[in-house]
Design a protein around this nucleic acid. Structure first.
Lengths: 164, 164
DNA sequence: CAGACGAATCTAGCGTTGCTAGGCTGAGGG
DNA sequence: CCCTCAGCCTAGCAACGCTAGATTCGTCTG
């Protein structure tokens, strides 16, 4: 998993081949299929789950008065600094199931932390979902060069203003 | 391109192989490489460009008093009903360049239409970018089952409220 | 201590992928 | 009548995900 994460971060997920992983850890391919019977997709899903746990800590760590902006900043920094990991978590066809009994607890907790930042009241869940969607949209569009990198702080401020 | 779009829409982009496209149009593989020298990525990029044009018309068609909600609804419906196309446009490693001289004019026009919906004033560009990011985030998270489909209309209303 | 067992690992190979080198074919011009 | 050239095809390469079957080696039993 560490090898997969490293290769994905530096060369993208298409460079993460089973052969290459096997070589990286000094074993042959079939050994990987014993630890991950579903093969490559399962390896990717495992890496993604480890990312959810990491992201959750980050989001939950915002206790500032200006929690909204700080959460947004932390989320976007995470997506930018762990682009490969973020891709596996949110953009690749994943074995991880969401909104079901098999949903990894790491993800559920991450969303709960987001809800807490936005406060209670009617429609709080919808607002939290939209806050998350907003961050996700900005994260991927920024990464793909579809939003100008220069106005990054300005965007964060405007996001906080919209949701406050 | 039509064959690629059809296969992608029904079976996903992974089913769009050069061999299969060749068979679908009744030619051999090398013929495809003469029309699209960069191979499969160029075919996908071409399909994506055709999607930008289509999306632009859709977004520009909102002239209601409640333009925000209507634009959001139209955008999300497009993403939902042409999921394969939308993926090629915004989520696949693309040959299309953005924010540069080679940016396809279709995309630029689509964004301008979005700016128009949000009105002028200071920070209008940032607000338009965020509106687009919001829609994109909701589109992909809804599609992946990460947002409950039931509250779709509620989300649209809240988005319009946030940006009004 | 000999032999059987089972886990761990390997080699080798299947079918499919994107892509390309090189040859064939047939219409048009000198 | 032959040459050229555009258009197309067959055949093949390297790399992919994945798997069947053989091999090795420590441990446990008689």
């Amino acid at each position: 998993m560490a090898a997969a994460r490293t290769i994905a971060e530096t060369e993208g997920w298409s460079a993460v081949t089973v052969r290459r992983l096997a070589a990286a850890i000094g074993y042959s391919q079939p050994v990987l299929y014993q630890h991950f019977p579903r093969g490559r997709p399962e390896i990717i899903a495992a890496v993604a789950r480890s990312g959810f746990a990491q992201l959750e800590e980050l989001v939950a760590g915002a206790d500032d008065p200006d929690a909204l902006a700080q959460t947004a900043r932390a989320y976007l920094a995470f997506a930018r600094e762990h682009a490969g990991l973020y891709t596996a978590m949110f953009e690749m066809p994943s074995l991880n199931r969401f909104a079901s009994a098999q949903t990894p607890p790491e993800l559920r907790r991450g969303f709960d932390a987001l809800v807490a930042v936005l406060g209670r009241g009617p429609g709080a869940d919808t607002r939290a979902e939209l806050f998350w969607s907003m961050l996700h949209g900005v994260a991927v569009l920024e990464r793909d060069g579809r939003l100008p990198a220069a106005q990054r702080e300005e965007r964060i401020a405007e996001i906080a203003r919209l949701f406050s």
